[in-house]
Write a protein that binds this DNA or RNA. Structure first.
Lengths: 236, 236
DNA sequence: GGCTCGTTTTGCGCTATCGCAAACTGCCGG
DNA sequence: CCGGCAGTTTGCGATAGCGCAAAACGAGCC
């Protein structure tokens, strides 16, 4: 219904190199949709009927094991695409997408992708860059999980969240959407309990301030130091 | 020099949907190169001068931390592309590629990519699929590292290696290139020692047979069971 | 204003896995 | 044929982090 102002999205990586009228044509194919907090945009295993661009809000993409355990694949911030399953050759979504805040998305039916890509090859190369960047990030995540202790991984995770979705405060940065200790545990490969212990410790030290699904980094720099330093003693 | 027979590579995912003469044109841009066992194809941080297609042999892609720890990102089997750094927008290689066996590659100078993609947009979409598949695999890896014990992760790793590069034997499957316990540790996020203990245990049970940089899966099915089963007791 | 439920905190024992050290082994080079 | 060395095995503490249990807390609802 309500059309999206092209100028609002023209600068996004997905549309890099597009003229106004091309952009128009692409946007015409999308419909916009609103999801309330905790609403499901799509579910793991469901048919990949659409791909999305987040306009407002925040989306959590999570993957579930057969035994019911979950990990958070990533948090989607406004301006990012998600649900690209079909673009990478999948017929079903490999993860579940849930709005963690009231969110507004642009959705293109899967069927439009081949046509759009054919007409606008730059869409494919732009998407390739995006997916490639995510691959790099995921490799970094594997590297961290392999070589760092939980405390450092949590520190890195918070810094990334702050960078991606941080709201600057007078003193510190607040993560701009509701996120629980459990969520952080699922991002870093640990347990709710361990995250809680770590954050409590940091709060004692005045590094952060926490609340119910809220985290404020009061001393980002000190957390950065924590994240980088080798646990205990390094190799001489 | 020696031209590559197009029919040998025509069926690869990278070239899906290409006619013979298009293929020819693409192949003409590549040069082939040979790397001896343990030769470096490129190094992490080095300028991304080329992208590659592996024709023969096996390549190990590994990422190193500032402190010198490594993880194996993946093993490249013949027919797969690697070193796609520039296609995904990187100017430097994010990992080091080493031949684990005498290997032959096809190499395209980075500069050819934009031109090739412009002329053959399907290259971009094919590559997108490939990179997307790798992203999925990496997410699976994160999931495993987050939710499974070391023994199961090792089992999964061996099964994947066997599937990708296994040589069928009378009784069992042999991994077709030299791979050390250390390598497996770096694939699963554990230590050389733990891998050695696990494999020794399995060898006792007759599940595998090992040697210096060699692994034979004698009972793939039993290993599969090991890989899938929840450690200890699952939830009732 | 009081209640309820989801989130967070915290205590405590347990153990999978690490980390170090040392012995062993099969290949490769000379 | 004889070292020497990289890769492997194994033993033995040390411990980070898990898992369970329970209490404290706080936001929203009635």
């Amino acid at each position: 219904m309500a059309k999206v102002d092209p100028s609002l999205v023209a600068h996004l990586p997905l549309f890099a190199g597009f003229k106004g009228e091309e952009l128009d044509e692409i946007l015409r194919e999308a419909r916009s949709a609103r999801y309330p907090k905790n609403g499901h945009v799509f579910e793991q295993g469901g048919d990949a009927h659409s791909f999305f661009l987040l306009l407002h809000g925040h989306i959590r993409a999570a993957k579930t094991t057969p035994t019911g355990e979950q990990i958070v694949v990533r948090y989607v911030a406004p301006g990012e695409t998600f649900g690209l399953a079909m673009a990478i050759g999948l017929a079903q979504y490999p993860a579940t997408a849930t709005a963690v805040d009231d969110s507004v998305v642009l959705a293109w039916p899967t069927g439009t992708w081949p046509r759009l890509v054919q007409k606008f090859p730059a869409l494919a190369t732009n998407t390739l860059q995006t997916v490639g960047a995510r691959l790099q990030e995921t490799h970094t995540r594997v590297l961290e999980m392999s070589t760092q202790q939980v405390e450092q991984r949590v520190a890195h995770a918070l810094l990334r969240l702050a960078k991606q979705s941080g709201k600057k405060l007078d003193h510190g940065v607040e993560i701009d959407f509701p996120i629980s200790r459990q969520d952080i545990a699922q991002m870093t490969g640990t347990t709710l309990h361990t995250v809680s212990r770590i954050l409590s410790g940091w709060e004692q030290l005045g590094l952060i301030e926490g609340g119910r699904q809220r985290i404020i980094l009061r001393e980002p720099h000190k957390i950065f130091v924590l994240a980088e330093q080798n646990a205990g003693g390094g190799q001489a």
